[in-house]
Amino acid sequence: MSFGEDDASRLLTAVLERPPEPGEARAIAEQVERARRHAVATNLAGTGELFTVETHAHAATLRGLAQGGDR
């Protein structure tokens, strides 16, 4: 079941407490699909290692490299 413009319109009205302006509902519906396709339905992380990856790990890596850590 896909998330359509009517769903997006209801989401926007619930969150922003106003009806959609032109283009907004379509843009939201489109983003739901793009997010699913590229962030969820991918194998970018290989097999399951995201379980232990913290959301600030990127910055921690840069800090470590700045202090002379290995890549």
Binding site: F3, I28, E30, R34, A39, V40, L44, L50, H58
Partner: peptide
């Protein structure tokens, strides 16, 4: 406004993927 189409867990997953990538 388009970003309302990104659920919070999906956003956080993207941040995890950032470190991995």
């Amino acid at each position: 406004v388009q970003a309302l189409g990104t659920a919070a867990p999906v956003y956080l997953r993207a941040l995890q993927l950032r470190a991995t990538l």
